[in-house]
Design a binder for these strands. Structure first.
Lengths: 211, 211
DNA sequence: TAAAAAATACCTTAATTCAGGTAGAAAATA
DNA sequence: TATTTTCTACCTGAATTAAGGTATTTTTTA
């Protein structure tokens, strides 16, 4: 028997999963946790074969929780569950010890396939997640920013204000600095992020989660 | 008997709803549509008492679909369903003819309450949605953009490309237009969004979920 | 079909930003 | 303490953007 723990604060999702595995005779839901704390206390008592882990929880983020679970529990297989399909998160999750990744637009077939695959010791990625990861790795080579540049405190500050829609003079006024200074900071940030316009800079910054 | 039509492309959500109303003897699911087209063709044949309408559909957005449904169907009550909790969308939806607004973190109790309320002719807003709407109206005085400007197709396109970090000439090349044209579009968008730089424009656009 | 809205193209001037610099003071670190 | 990093300020010329126009064609809508 494969026992599941669902970690998700949405009754809708938990119900949907219940619906999907209803009628599958070798899978059963052992518990539903609505947040990270509940999940951890649950896992102290019971070791489910499969943990379906929502990435967006009210009290913690899935990545942290995944790490925490792996500290004490190497037995359970963790399948991450999310509506977003973001390559860097997927990769981080897998590095943290997740065994699979499902999108919330999955259907019954996909869920059961994932559970089966993961129980066999494989890594399961939903089709579109897989695609994203591929894209990510293939774009890495074309993307010169494979190592994130480190911005100084001031540079980050200026970047944020730029992202807030302020221009050079406005920022200089806000920070009590000469506008020349701001422009120098901007220039440096642009060099670091390899951008040749402020808009590109902001896009790159956003893409690299610097903002 | 209250008949439901679920319009949502996530089997998980549809399953969750099914789970929630299972055992409620006067509510039944009459159909599940996975996109706007399916929904409309379904509604040609059957008039459900309640339509549970996901705002994020693969082929159209919920607002448009809500409008379309209201053109031919004044009988069914529409309850919008979404994971985001955004005041301006809620308000637009209600203006378009939706009768309720539920967040996907709802529980069984809330769903059934919403259906009951709406069947009685009331408007139902989930607690947090209600709160957001309150906040929105109290912040309106500070926000000069109380009515969202409507951008034309072209303007939206240019806005998106600007958000992608492209500049005027690049966009003009991409769209096979003169760069003067692009600048005019930019100017119009800026006027509509009340911005006085492209960066501010993009920020405002982002704040108003135009991007 | 007539009127209105949207899309297109072009112009000008002023302001802002970009992309090179240089360079000194302050702060952090080895 | 010596060195490095960060923060600061300034300059210049080229490029881009902002903000104000005008005006024609195409598309939508009443």
């Amino acid at each position: 028997m494969i026992n599941l723990l669902i970690i998700d604060d949405h009754p809708l999702v938990a119900g949907g999963i219940e619906m999907m595995i209803r009628g599958v005779e070798n899978i059963a839901i052992k518990g539903i946790a609505k947040n990270g704390a509940d999940a951890l206390s649950f896992l102290e008592k019971i070791k489910p074969e499969i943990i379906l882990l929502d990435i967006n929880l009210p009290d913690t983020d899935g990545l942290q929780l995944c790490k925490k679970i792996r500290v004490t529990n190497l037995y359970s297989k963790i399948i991450a569950l999310t509506s977003a399909n973001d390559a860097s998160i997927i990769i981080q999750l897998l590095q943290t010890g997740a065994n699979g990744y499902l999108l919330k637009n999955m259907d019954q077939y996909e869920l059961i396939e994932a559970i089966d695959k993961v129980m066999q010791g494989d890594i399961y990625l939903s089709k579109s997640a897989n695609q994203k990861v591929q894209e990510y790795y293939s774009s890495v080579s074309t993307n010169p920013l494979d190592t994130l540049p480190t911005l100084t405190r001031r540079e980050k500050e200026v970047l944020r204000l730029l992202a807030d829609g302020m221009n050079g003079p406005q920022i200089s006024e806000k920070l009590f600095l000469s506008h020349f200074t701001i422009e120098t900071h901007r220039k440096h940030i642009m060099q670091k992020l390899n951008a040749n316009s402020t808009q590109q800079l902001l896009k790159t910054a956003r893409d690299n989660k610097l903002i």
